[in-house]
């Protein structure tokens, strides 16, 4: 046996031993853990509700969580965080509005909003960072930040209204009245709050 082939055999043996335990790379570990913690944060934010100044429907902060997932984690991991939120909720984590959970919620009246979340987080992240790689969001212009969140809001509400049309068999007008008119004005406040959070120095972990 030549020296080189002996080396290769030893290398293969080491591989055979270590293949039993497949370690997760450092960067992936960071991203998975952050995405999971953000998914849980979006769920926790659905428990925080404030009285709405312009409508009887209380304001919950889930949508703010989606914006921030795209802004702080970037498009890929922001969307992953939202996907984890949906899967965890489907499998029984009480993360949906009102502490609800289960597969049925995705096919229920609010299913459209929920299913649009990964796409909204991806769009917000991609616009804010101008690509797939996350950068420092504080360095981004105000117009880009607000524009990204407006696009995200439009995506969420379009899917939400479409979801109501499909699940409740409503016409576009009724679905728009039920699903967007009462809820959408509060999004302006959330966008303003998100700008404040991104621009403050309080969060440095991103």
């Amino acid at each position: 046996m030549t020296e080189r082939s002996q080396d290769r055999t030893e290398h293969e043996e080491t591989n055979a031993i270590t293949s039993d335990v497949e370690l997760v790379g450092d960067e992936t570990t960071t991203n998975i853990v952050r995405a999971a913690s953000f998914a849980a944060l979006i769920g926790a934010l659905s428990y925080v509700s404030f009285p709405n100044p312009v409508s009887p429907t209380p304001v919950t902060l889930q949508v703010l969580g989606i914006f921030l997932a795209g802004i702080f984690l970037g498009p890929i991991w922001g969307a992953t965080a939202c996907a984890l939120y949906l899967v965890a909720g489907t499998l029984g984590a009480p993360v949906f509005a009102g502490g609800a959970a289960g597969f049925g919620v995705l096919l229920g009246p609010t299913g459209g909003y929920l299913l649009s979340m990964p796409f909204a987080a991806f769009a917000v992240g991609a616009i804010v960072h101008g690509g797939f790689a996350p950068s420092d969001p504080r360095a981004r212009g105000l117009i880009r930040l607000v524009g990204a969140m407006v696009v995200g809001t439009v995506l969420i509400y379009a899917a939400g209204v479409a979801g109501m049309m499909a699940t409740l068999d409503l016409g576009p007008t009724e679905a728009f009245l039920t699903g967007a008119v009462a809820l959408a004005p509060a999004e302006v406040l959330k966008i303003a709050a998100a700008v404040g959070i991104v621009r403050s120095d309080a969060i440095t972990a991103a």
Binding site: T29, L45, L64, K190
Partner: peptide, 29 residues
């Protein structure tokens, strides 16, 4: 103001989420 209340509560949430994620990540590694 409502915007300030939302900002303060969410800022705390994001800081805690990142803090907990960083500690867990270290432990997992």
């Amino acid at each position: 103001r409502l915007i300030d209340r939302m900002r303060i509560v969410t800022t705390t949430g994001v800081r805690r989420a990142f803090g907990r994620a960083d500690r867990l990540e270290m432990a997992l590694r």
